[in-house]
Design a protein around this nucleic acid. Sequence first.
RNA 1: GGGAUCGUAGCUCAGUCGGUUAGAGCGCCUGACUGUGGCUCAGGAGGUCGUGGGUUCGAGUCCCAUCGAUCCCCCCA
Length: 421
Amino acid sequence: MELKYRALEGMNDVLPEQSTLWHSVESRWREHCRRYGYGEIRTPILETAELFERTVGETSDIVSKEMYVFQRGEERYALKPEGTAPVVRAYLEHGLYAAGSVQKLYYITPFFRGERPQKGRYRQAHQFGAEIFGAAHPLADAELLYMVMDFFQSLGVPADALELRVNTIGCPECRPAYREAVRNWGRDNYARLCKNCQARLERNPLRILDCKECVEITTDAPTIDPYLCDTCRTHFESLQSLLKTLEVPYVRSHRLVRGLDYYTRTTFEVVAEHGLGSQNALCGGGRYDGLVEELGGPPTPALGVGIGVERTLLVLQALKAPLPQPAPIDAFVVAFGDAARPVALQTAIQLRHAGIATDLDLEGRSPKAQMRLANRSGARYAILLGDSELQQGTASVKNLQTHEQTTVCQTELAEWIKSRL
RNA sequence: GGGAUCGUAGCUCAGUCGGUUAGAGCGCCUGACUGUGGCUCAGGAGGUCGUGGGUUCGAGUCCCAUCGAUCCCCCCA
């Protein structure tokens, strides 16, 4: 069949078979966040493009070449390319800082990036997010990291299938000096750097550390530790000590600098060994202590995480975890003869009102075909209605597993089935 | 944005050296059984071989272009 319309490149439909899995992971996330004291926030898919240009950064790949932007009238809009900026915007817009103390917000959102699709990377993807506002203490970092690893464990992903990578990238106090140091090192080693990194040198030298092509060369690049200010160093040290106390395994990754401009101090990601191909980061996040103020709010320390839903699903799939099956219906109503068809519909509705998942043939099919449908539906009971049942005000109820058949008064039908499910 | 591989029925795939009317399994529909499913048997529907062009007496098969899918680089969830 030649298709006139198909889903756009990198955009996927989730069919009923798959959506059962989505539901189970989504509800797992909701329950998990509830236990950790989070409230849900939902923000629009569309924001003014400027929000992301200001926060994610004009030079970042996400904004400069992947963001879906369009104009309508005077306003430039963007489909959200990530989850944090809109939440910060909403946090300010609704004065959530006025509630005092710490605010914890979680969400499930689609996001959009115009990249070439590959395994684990799509143009519309979905993200579980969690953000903490107003907590400067490393306790917040530790709790967030623990929560993330705890989430994967609750999904049945064994700890040794994952690697938590943690780093600090300093703050506006101490990072400039480090950035200069990396830049100077880069100038000294200019000829050895790849083309990309030569360009990065002036614009965003820290990203050189993240370059796969230059891995060999950057092993002797300066590390941030000697440059960290007292506050940043203490923060990072106590986070690491807390992780040890909580027995969260992690590795220090000097290369983890992240591609979004708003990060300060703690950055982290979780990579999976199996199931993800080359896009192996399951989640990423960090601290963004300057972002709220940058958007015109009061100085507010904050941090957050984004977990890729599709990638999580791929990892689960690779683990061969048993797929959650959609719950079958409870009853299937079969009409023998045309006179019974309206009664069958009424009966189905009556059972549904009683909370019994019920279906029936909607094509006027033969009894035999209806029985086939009943069998295929997975229903426990077939409710058979024919002339004789209609006359007596009864229904023949057939248990499709045991083949047992009983006559039940139509008025007692719902109760009879309910008590047996 | 660059690259590699792949496009035959709803799905998974055969299809020889270029040769007559396009094949299987699964799934779907009907019947055997006029009011009773699964199993079995019999029959049936379903294809512009992704699309367009070219080579040839002849193209699913060879060539070119194009669209799409998958994966990789880049980047990131």
